[in-house]
């Protein structure tokens, strides 16, 4: 991976990916997994697909920019600041872990995605502890981590499909 140049095309690409991530977040909010799995904060993490994609296609910096834009705009749309803390901490943790895991070249997209999903839940848990001011919510973490194995595999699968479909397309220069 070489550093992405901030050409007009690439900035536009970031904007499209941000919009896509926001769209996916909205989509999964319409079909909450928490109805099936009664845990607070359970999510499919579809927006994570965009993060994974951006991380590999564009690099860490653009992926972070997209993440910040997605969290900021998302909480603006939802109209609440505590949601910003949740999505930001979750997203940042996922991002940092995935940047790290990406360096293990032997890991496939699944490993990276699972690590990101687990880290996302840990970040959200930290946000919950900060907001609620007590650590009782930690009791949910083991279950959330278990769920993140499934959601991480799922988003990894979708991302793999995506990369396969785009095997001969190069987006950034």
């Amino acid at each position: 991976m070489t550093d992405m140049k901030w050409t007009t095309k690439n900035i536009a690409l970031c904007a499209v990916l941000t919009a896509l991530a926001l769209g996916l977040s909205t989509l999964e909010n319409m079909f909450p997994v928490s109805l099936a799995v009664p845990l607070p904060g359970v999510k499919l993490g579809l927006a994570n697909i965009v993060t994974v994609f951006a991380l590999y296609e564009l690099g860490a910096v653009p992926a972070l920019v997209i993440l910040f834009a997605r969290c900021g705009l998302g909480s603006l749309f939802a109209g609440n600041v505590s949601a910003l803390l949740f999505s930001m901490l979750g997203g940042l943790c996922a991002m940092l872990v995935m940047i790290g895991l990406k360096h293990c070249r032997k890991l496939s997209i699944y490993g990276v995605s699972i690590g990101g999903a687990a880290a996302h839940n840990i970040g959200q848990m930290a946000a919950a502890i900060i907001t609620l001011g007590n650590t009782m919510v930690l009791g949910y973490l083991p279950f959330l981590l278990a769920v993140s194995l499934i959601t991480g595999t799922l988003t990894g699968f979708v991302a793999a499909l995506l990369f396969r479909a785009m095997a001969h397309v190069t987006l950034s220069h």
């Binding site: 940092l96 872990v97 790290g100 293990c104 880290a119 930290a126 007590n134 650590t135 930690l138 973490l141």
Partner: peptide
């Protein structure tokens, strides 16, 4: 590979530890 997993584990563990500190 091993190095990274160790790093990840350390990061995740330290995160959960700092977050915990059950009230005394």
């Amino acid at each position: 590979m091993k190095r990274w997993i160790c790093l990840l584990l350390a990061a995740v563990l330290s995160l959960s530890l700092t977050a915990c500190g059950a009230p005394k």
